[in-house]
Lab assay of single mutants.
Amino acid sequence: MALNTPQITPTKKITVRAIGEELPRGDYQRCPQCDMLFSLPEINSHQSAYCPRCQAKIRDGRDWSLTRLAAMAFTMLLLMPFAWGEPLLHIWLLGIRIDANVMQGIWQMTKQGDAITGSMVFFCVIGAPLILVTSIAYLWFGNRLGMNLRPVLLMLERLKEWVMLDIYLVGIGVASIKVQDYAHIQAGVGLFSFVALVILTTVTLSHLNVEELWERFYPQRPATRRDEKLRVCLGCHFTGYPDQRGRCPRCHIPLRLRRRHSLQKCWAALLASIVLLLPANLLPISIIYLNGGRQEDTILSGIMSLASSNIAVAGIVFIASILVPFTKVIVMFTLLLSIHFKCQQGLRTRILLLRMVTWIGRWSMLDLFVISLTMSLINRDQILAFTMGPAAFYFGAAVILTILAVEWLDSRLLWDAHESGNARFDD
């Protein structure tokens, strides 16, 4: 018995066209964080690309023209004298008006014999932002004059995390709450300039795509075929072959399989920071003279006294001054041990922890910024005066060393310790 099946006739004509040209192939790229070699397709503007294995951002879609970056830099340069030299806060102490600005706080630190601690604050609040705007201006002028731009481009990517104007702005709020127990506070004209400078700096850093600047100024022929001998440069993120001198053909720094002496430098910085954190938390970090009496505060006791007036601000200072430094030390110690013992479990967790400490590390400088600003506000000789204690130097040095330890660690070593050939990683 035959089955009668109805015929289905399409209502619209289906047209099949042959592909007349070869589909576009992607360029081969190595991930600078996990060293995976993959094919990167062509990316349009405002599109980002991520590593298929570790999800690290390979290409950032946010990109401004150099002219727009230069305009932002010149605007920031105009704001800087007002943000640093004009009063941020006014207080009335014992019937006398006192003005506080950024430069005055750094000068008070240096004047009291601790120039190293003052230079830490100076670099993060004044030096690094000033280098940022002058570097962008150098790129703008240098591109037109045919100057060598490689050193500036190499420095810009590392400079971003040292620009800490946003953290200093939080420190202004913390210092205001600490001082309000002794005097009446009012915002100064410099505060508005400083807030504007923070906003412009944040926007500029978020749109400063150094890798795209490398592509514009020093374009290189990408690798179009897969080759395990391809290496990625950690300076400019170019994937290719080393030249005859073993250097990256684009930025001219040595092109090595792994960062040289990464573990040794990381261990040295980490152990030194552990040693410095002990006096930083045991010795007094601030000293207040009130009517001839002397009151010393460690980091913890200062947080407890701050909690009596504002528990939320005390929580912020606790996280930045105690929780973050010790968390960074514990995480980095764990990561280094996992590399030495070739741990194969929990790779995803370790990668996330490394990215976390990379982002939060700079916030530990908050305590030094609060001390710097408070020193310029309260300084009335023996009637009422505020000065920093010996722990300030140890704390600042420990924070900087932990930042350097994270920067010096080559994250690809975590993958080397893991089993080879993993296309995915999980716990």
Rank of each mutant, 00 (worst) to 15 (best):
M1T: 00
N4G: 05
Q7F: 05
I8G: 04
T9F: 06
P10I: 05
K13Q: 10
I14P: 08
E21P: 08
D27E: 09
D27P: 14
Y28W: 09
R30N: 04
C31N: 00
C31F: 00
D35Q: 03
M36A: 09
L37Q: 09
L37M: 10
L40D: 06
P41R: 08
N44I: 06
N44E: 08
S45R: 09
S48Q: 12
S48H: 13
Y50L: 15
R53E: 06
R53M: 08
Q55S: 08
A56H: 08
I58L: 06
I58Q: 03
G61R: 11
R62A: 09
L66F: 05
L69G: 08
L69P: 09
A73T: 09
L78H: 05
L78T: 06
L79C: 03
L79S: 03
W84K: 08
L89K: 03
W92D: 02
L93P: 01
L93E: 01
L94F: 08
I96V: 07
I98Y: 03
M103F: 04
I106V: 11
Q108A: 14
Q112F: 07
G113I: 14
D114T: 05
I116A: 07
G118P: 04
M120H: 03
F122D: 04
F122W: 04
F123E: 03
G127M: 02
A128G: 05
P129E: 09
L130T: 12
I131H: 01
V133N: 03
S135C: 08
I136D: 02
I136N: 02
L139K: 03
W140H: 06
F141I: 15
G142R: 01
N143M: 14
L149T: 14
R150H: 04
P151C: 03
R158N: 13
R158P: 13
L159N: 04
V163I: 13
D166L: 15
L169P: 05
V170F: 15
G171F: 00
V174G: 14
V179Q: 01
Q180C: 15
A183F: 01
H184G: 08
H184F: 13
G188W: 04
L200K: 09
L200I: 11
V203N: 13
L205Q: 15
L205V: 09
S206N: 15
E211T: 08
L213H: 14
W214Y: 11
R216Y: 13
R226H: 15
K229T: 13
L230Q: 14
V232W: 13
G235K: 03
F238C: 12
G240F: 09
P242F: 12
P242T: 09
Q244K: 14
G246E: 10
R247N: 11
C251Y: 01
H252M: 05
L255K: 13
L257S: 06
R259P: 09
S262A: 13
C266N: 07
A269Y: 04
L270A: 11
L277N: 06
L278C: 13
P279G: 14
N281W: 05
L283S: 10
P284F: 08
I285D: 00
I285C: 03
I288N: 01
Y289M: 03
L290A: 02
N291M: 15
N291R: 15
G293M: 12
G293E: 04
Q295D: 03
Q295N: 14
E296A: 13
G302W: 00
G302K: 00
L306T: 00
S308Y: 10
S309A: 10
S309F: 13
S309T: 13
I311S: 11
G315N: 15
V317C: 01
V317M: 01
F318A: 10
A320D: 11
A320C: 15
L323F: 06
T327P: 00
T327A: 13
L336W: 08
L337Y: 15
S338M: 14
I339V: 08
H340N: 09
Q345E: 14
Q345L: 15
G346Y: 15
R348D: 12
R350N: 11
I351Y: 10
I351D: 12
L352M: 12
L353T: 13
M356S: 12
V357H: 02
V357F: 01
T358L: 10
I360D: 00
W363F: 03
W363T: 04
S364N: 00
M365C: 04
L366W: 01
D367V: 00
L368Q: 09
F369H: 05
I371W: 01
S372G: 15
L373H: 03
I378N: 00
I378F: 01
N379P: 01
N379M: 02
R380T: 01
R380A: 01
I383S: 02
A385T: 07
A391L: 01
A392E: 01
A392H: 01
Y394E: 03
G396Q: 02
G396I: 02
A397L: 04
I403T: 02
L404S: 10
A405L: 02
V406I: 10
W408P: 11
L409K: 05
L409A: 04
R412F: 00
L413Y: 11
L413V: 10
L413S: 08
W415F: 11
W415P: 04
W415Q: 09
A417I: 09
A423D: 15
D426V: 07
D427Q: 12
